[in-house]
Design a protein around this nucleic acid. Structure first.
Lengths: 150, 150
DNA sequence: TATTGTTATACTCTATAACTATA
DNA sequence: TATAGTTATAGAGTATAACAATA
């Protein structure tokens, strides 16, 4: 296989991955809209199965702590979470309310229903696909972020 | 296979897809930084192999026309493209300069070199993977965007 | 009247830096 | 001194609406 061939293949694969990525994001955004919450809140809801501290949520969302404060404020205003006191008197745990849990489940169900991977591939293929994704993620070069997101 | 099983699988696959999507975006952002252009300009460069009108570029980037004007301004300032007159006297074609072409090729090469799919999978696996991505994209439900992006 | 590009403006998402309270 | 959360502010990316020139 020529190196020109590999280059063309790499371009195609990159393009396809980015399109699939956009598709995933668009579908998720549509779902967030259907359940009437902003996308960042929908993302947080999905990660908040068990209660988590604000710093932990920042870690899961891969964002800065300072972003969590207004996010949690909004979620509290919408009645989706409560700030409850943690082990420390510094730490605040975000805990889903019943409404938050309901919303979370709605999102999960919809994500399943429109999941293009489930729709496009049969179970055996999905297992193969999943294993490949895991390997791709594991192989990823170090990303030296210029924005440390601390 | 139970429906609970499918739900869990869908969640895992969604999560993996989103992680892979973020990985792709992060890698591309790193490359854009290495060649010293903002990410949106790097994206535009990749799409501008042949010259395109501003409206066509908006279509390829899936964004509004109004976004292209300042983008093209920046690219002209950086000496990467030129606005040349098109068939119409309304239409302006964006044409890569030599510097723009060089930058474009640099980006293409780097994308190939750090492509985690190339690094993680052998040629046969990549063919399988690519076919699966194509099917996933083809199967995607209609996305009824609330933001018409016209 | 429809289309191309432009302008002015505003919105969403997210970061940085400096701060407070607690440890 | 280090950590959890907060505040104020700023920046990137992108949209909407109204507009001018051309078709």
């Amino acid at each position: 296989m020529s190196s020109a061939h590999i280059l063309a293949e790499a371009r195609r694969l990159s393009q396809l991955m980015l399109e699939t990525a956009d598709l995933s994001k668009d579908l998720f955004a549509e779902i967030a809209h259907e359940v009437a919450v902003p996308v960042p809140i929908a993302r947080a809801l999905c990660l908040l199965e068990n209660s988590a501290s604000m710093t932990e949520l920042a870690g899961m969302l891969a964002c800065d702590k300072s972003y969590i404060t207004p996010l949690a404020d909004q979620m509290e205003t919408l009645g989706l979470v409560q700030r409850v006191s943690g082990p420390d008197r510094r730490t605040k745990l975000l805990q889903l309310t019943d409404a938050g849990n309901t919303k979370r489940e709605q999102i999960g169900d919809k994500v399943t229903q429109v999941n293009p991977i489930i729709l496009a591939l049969n179970p055996d293929e999905r297992a193969t696909f999943e294993a490949m994704l895991v390997r791709i993620l594991a192989t990823s070069p170090q990303i030296q972020t210029d924005k440390p997101k601390r």
